[in-house]
């Protein structure tokens, strides 16, 4: 049975018609056109569907929409636009962290929740927080570098040397070409 459910996504309120047990991921992608979060395994094993709810990283493929009424949902589209990428998105672009890009929106959102709660994480804390998000291309080292870069620029730590980019071709436009770190839908908050 479908019903009308009120969801708050990226600061905007949406009424969606959906069966209450529908996973949030399906509503984001199919009803709201927010295609950043990806369907990977559908079993909570890969993290590609990670979004942030009330400041915490959640697996949107395993969270029924009915459990989300009144809670603030943030997707990768809520962090910035292709023209004005957010801090983490900039860091992922600068480090060329995306290869195929499929996991990246989930990685960015998991890292976003981490840095919100712990602005200055240790390497061990970053690795522990990110452990549940898989990347089949193997760009983990660049993903970690991007998170460290975002953490140090959030600190405004201009005196310290930001970690060097790990690869060649770190042009911003090129990074954006990989897509997932940038926004894909129109409903965004700048």
């Amino acid at each position: 049975m479908t019903g009308s459910i009120a969801l708050s996504v990226n600061g905007r309120r949406h009424m969606v018609e959906a069966a209450p047990e529908t996973p949030l991921l399906y509503v984001l992608r199919d009803d709201l056109g927010l295609n950043g979060a990806k369907f990977g395994c559908g079993l909570g094993q890969c993290g590609a569907c990670t979004v942030v709810v009330d400041g915490r990283a959640v697996l949107s493929c395993l969270l029924p929409v009915a459990a989300l009424e009144g809670r603030a949902i943030t997707t990768v589209e809520g962090l910035g636009t292709p023209e004005r990428p957010g801090l983490l998105q900039q860091a992922f672009i600068a480090e060329n962290a995306a290869q195929c890009g499929y996991c990246i929106a989930g990685m960015v959102m998991r890292a976003h929740a981490l840095l919100d709660r712990n602005p200055d994480p240790t390497e061990a804390e970053i690795r522990a927080a990110m452990a549940g998000n898989l990347c089949r291309c193997g760009t983990h080292r660049r993903i970690l570098a991007a998170i460290r870069r975002a953490a140090s620029s959030r600190k405004g730590d201009r005196a310290g040397t930001p970690p060097p980019a790990t690869g060649a071709g770190q042009g911003q436009g090129q990074g954006q070409g990989h897509g997932a770190a940038g926004a894909t839908a129109g409903r965004v908050r700048s």
């Binding site: 049975m1 009308s4 459910i5 209450p20 029924p64 459990a67 809670r71």
Partner: peptide, 8 residues
Amino acid sequence: GRAGPSTT
């Protein structure tokens, strides 16, 4: 969170 879904 809220107590739960208010829909049927």
